[in-house]
Design a protein around this nucleic acid. Structure first.
Length: 448
RNA sequence: GGCCCUAUCGUCUAACGGUUAGGACAUCGCCUUCUCAAGGCGGUAAUCCGGGUUCAAUUCCCGGUAGGGUCACCA
């Protein structure tokens, strides 16, 4: 058989390429990965494409790309469609030892067509197994009947392929979603028919939608690709998902993948399903954004900025810190841009002149005076040292004397043309001395 | 419906018989402030219900209720 006998821990994720990489699959993969790695074992990806009708190469690529993006690197890779000879052998073995039989019946797929499916001879006994997160679970397998294990002697169905592969690949621990609990007795029956040793099982809770129903596209994005496109940071996603159904038993929440490998503990896995909370994910993403360097932020932000903006590298660099604290994910830049929230960084704003006056001090004549004074004060600041600190220093005394709102609101409005924006010092620094003074004069002219 | 699993703040969770039931997200208030964001400080908020066991139950047992999963010639 050429199978290497080893007592090292081996886990696997077995996605079927009939859809995009799902959040739940990723969480299961992550737990498998963490458990294998912390024990010096191997993590295996096995594409379960025995359903030729529904499996596609595109989905397979999406799944593999997703794992790569998340940094979950497999040690071994398999594709069930390439292993049909192996399954054939095992089917034959069951036929030979009488634990399975060929049954002539009408095809369910094609009415009227007679086919020969392979059914397991089920003695209908009670099957008991130990689940690492739930304890002992017992099933009466009578009601399962003689279930079908292969479409034909060479075309295995899921349960058979899984059992054979987990055995052939020496999988020691099967960590999978709770939805597989009721599949387990079936697979144990096949194992017993084949005389195969039973792996250890750990069924982890499902990820739920906000209404506690099964997570579907209706509620939130379920596909990892969507999160990637929205500009989530992969390590933030990993960190969040690790804490969905597991916790370290301490207050620590921020974990790198390596830290997770160290601290992960199968014993601490939750039994109940967990709702996927996008708000908390966003918080993690913001935390990870804070850890990024300016250069890293820059490359990310550039991906989402509309091309219509005329951006210099210098300006972009200054904007970064101002806008990063205003977003959850990089994709928010797109939204900010389309709502006009970023326009003032790139072009002279348009606005109604009456808005230049602060609501508590609406004398436009005085507004013009303040703006003139601010402009002349800023004129005295060194162009090459036009930082928010210097800017603030230059006008602070005047602003305090005349009333900060009366001076700063018009200044800020002249620069941004919006009720809500970053403070005038930040804006002025980003815009630079010339543009700042230009906009101030522009506002003064507007008043007349 | 049968079988199986689950049950602590709105959400993720801590507590492995004795705690003022802790933390985080969200939310609310205050501070900071020309506006927004960020930040700082503080508040509201939970053991599903009913029986046991025990000197003592969030914790152990049983029942109920609720939610979920699964009942394919899909995986």
């Amino acid at each position: 058989m050429g199978r290497e006998q080893t007592n090292k821990i081996r886990t696997r994720i077995a996605p079927s390429p009939t859809g995009d990489l799902h959040i739940g699959t990723v969480r299961t993969a992550l737990f498998n990965y963490l458990f294998a790695k912390q024990n010096g074992g191997k993590f295996i990806i096995r594409i379960e494409d025995t359903d030729k009708e529904r499996s596609t190469k595109e989905f397979e690529d999406d799944i593999l790309e997703g794992f790569r993006w998340l940094g979950l690197k497999e040690d071994e890779f398999y594709r069930q469609s390439e292993r049909t000879d192996i399954y054939k052998k095992y089917i034959q073995q069951m036929l030979d030892n009488g634990t399975a039989y060929i049954s002539k019946e009408e095809s369910k797929a094609e009415a009227g067509k007679e086919i020969e499916v392979v059914r397991l001879k089920n003695a209908g006994k009670k099957v008991k197994f130990e689940d690492m997160v739930r304890g002992e679970i017992e099933f009466d397998t009578t009601e399962l009947g003689d279930f079908v294990i292969a479409r034909s002697t060479e075309d295995p169905l899921y349960h058979l392929a899984v059992v054979v592969d987990d055995h052939e690949m020496n999988i020691t621990h099967i960590i999978r979603g709770e939805d597989h609990i009721s599949n387990t007795p079936r697979q144990i029956l096949i194992q017993e028919a084949l005389g195969i040793t039973r792996p250890k099982y750990a069924h982890i809770p499902l990820i739920l939608a906000p209404d506690r129903s099964k997570m579907s596209k209706r509620h939130n994005a379920t596909s990892i690709t969507e999160y990637r496109q929205k500009g989530y940071i992969s390590s933030a996603l990993i960190n969040y998902m690790a804490l969905l159904g597991w916790n370290p038993g301490t207050d620590k929440e921020l974990f790198t993948l390596d830290e997770l490998i160290k601290e992960f503990d199968l014993e601490k896995i939750q039994k109940g399903g967990a709702i996927f909370d996008i708000e908390k994910l966003n918080w993690f993403n913001r935390e990870y954004m804070k850890k990024m360097s300016k250069a890293e932020l820059l490359t990310e932000i550039e991906k989402y900025l509309p091309e219509s903006y005329d951006i210099s590298y210098e300006k972009l660099e200054k904007i970064i810190s101002v806008i990063s604290e205003r977003m959850n994910v990089f994709g928010d830049i797109k939204k900010m841009a389309s709502s006009g929230e970023l326009d003032y960084y790139f072009k002279n704003p348009e606005y109604d002149r009456k808005n230049l006056a602060w609501k508590q001090d609406s004398d436009l004549k005085k507004v013009a005076e303040h703006l003139k004074k601010v402009a002349s004060l800023l004129d005295g600041v060194d162009k090459n040292n036009f930082t928010q600190d210097e800017i603030k220093k230059a006008i602070w005394y005047y602003a305090e004397e005349k009333g900060k709102g009366s001076v700063l609101w018009p200044m800020r409005y002249a620069l941004s043309g919006r009720d809500k924006s970053p403070d005038p010092f930040q804006l002025a620094e980003v815009l630079g001395k010339d543009e700042t003074i230009y906009r101030l004069k522009n506002a003064i002219n507007k008043i007349g």
